[in-house]
C-alpha cells in the first residue's frame, strides 16, 4: 500500500533521516518505535510532504506522492494526526470534527452529522464539549479530538504520531482497542509510539528507528521478544 524507499531528510546541517525504507501492506497495523529524536515525527512529515526530502521516494497505492502537495495526499486517503495535535483552537469541537470532511466535496450535511455522532459515541467527553472552542479542552481531550478528526477523514491509511501522549492509562487502552476495531473495518494504520509495549502488542509488524535509520524490523511479537528492544525500549 505504502512503499518508502531510501528516505533522506535534513534540517540544515542536521540529518534527521538517513535512508529510511519501509513498507506498509493493506489492512496492517505498523508500529514505528524509537527514542527521542530518532526521526519518527520526521518520517510522518515526509510522507505528508510537510518537510523537504533530500532523497527517496514514496509510493502510495501505485501513485508516486514524493512531491505531491500535502492536501492532495490527504485526498488520496492518507490522514495524519500530528504530534502536538494541531487542533484548531478557535473552532468549536464540532467544527474541528466537521473540518475532517472538508475535502470531501460531495458529502451531505446529514452524513456529516451522522459521522460526528459516531465520534461522540467513541469519545463521550467530546460530546459534552461540542460547542466549546477546541483550545479550551485539556491536553488529553485535544488528543482525542485530533484522533477523532483523523477518523472523520475516513482515510485508507491513518498515521498517528504518539496518540497516547498525555492520556490516562485507561484512555490509552481504549484508544488501542479502537485502533484494532477500525482495523477490522478495513483501515491501515501507521502508529508512532514511545509506549513500545502497547504499540508492539497491537502491531502486525514494527520498525525500530534509531538516529534516522531503521535498525530492526519484524512482527510485533518478534520485536517484543528481541533482547535489544527489551533493553532499549521496554525497560526490561
Amino acid at each position: 500500500m505504502l512503499k518508502i524507499e531510501n528516505l533522506v531528510v535534513n534540517y540544515g546541517y542536521i540529518s534527521a533521516l538517513r535512508g529510511v525504507s519501509m513498507e506498509i501492506k493493506e489492512n496492517e497495523i505498523i508500529s514505528l518505535i524509537g527514542g527521542n529524536g530518532a526521526g519518527k515525527t520526521t518520517t510522518l512529515m515526509a510522507i505528508s510532504n510537510l518537510v523537504k526530502k533530500a532523497e527517496g521516494s514514496i509510493v502510495f497505492n501505485g501513485i508516486n506522492i514524493t512531491k505531491m502537495e500535502a492536501n492532495k495526499i490527504v485526498d488520496l486517503g492518507i490522514a495524519h494526526v500530528p504530534e502536538g495535535r494541531n487542533i484548531f483552537k478557535q473552532l468549536s469541537v464540532e467544527e474541528n470534527l466537521i473540518i475532517g470532511t472538508i475535502s470531501d466535496k460531495k458529502i451531505t450535511r446529514s452524513k456529516v452529522n451522522e459521522k460526528c455522532e459516531e465520534m461522540f459515541l467513541l469519545f463521550p467527553r467530546l460530546k459534552e464539549r461540542r460547542k466549546k472552542p477546541g483550545g479550551s479542552l485539556s491536553g488529553g481531550e485535544q488528543q482525542m479530538l485530533a484522533i477523532a478528526r483523523g477518523l472523520m477523514m475516513k482515510p485508507k491509511l491513518l498515521m498517528l504520531d504518539e496518540p497516547s501522549l498525555g492520556l490516562a492509562p485507561i484512555i490509552i487502552e481504549e484508544i488501542f482497542e479502537l485502533l484494532q476495531k477500525v482495523k477490522t473495518d478495513g483501515m491501515t494504520i501507521l502508529l508512532i509510539e514511545q509506549n513500545a509495549t502497547m504499540a508492539l502488542n497491537v502491531a502486525d509488524r514494527g520498525y525500530v528507528l534509531q538516529n534516522g535509520e531503521i535498525v530492526l524490523t519484524g512482527t510485533g511479537k518478534e520485536l517484543l521478544n528481541n533482547p535489544d528492544v527489551k533493553k532499549a525500549y521496554l525497560g526490561i
Partner: peptide, 25 residues
Amino acid sequence: TRIGMKLRAVSQDKKAAALVGINVK
C-alpha cells in the same frame, strides 16, 4: 460556508489545515 471554514482554519493553523486536505495556497 465550507469555504469560510477553510479560511478560518488556514488563519489558525496552516499545517493542520493542510493535513485535513485544505489547499492552503
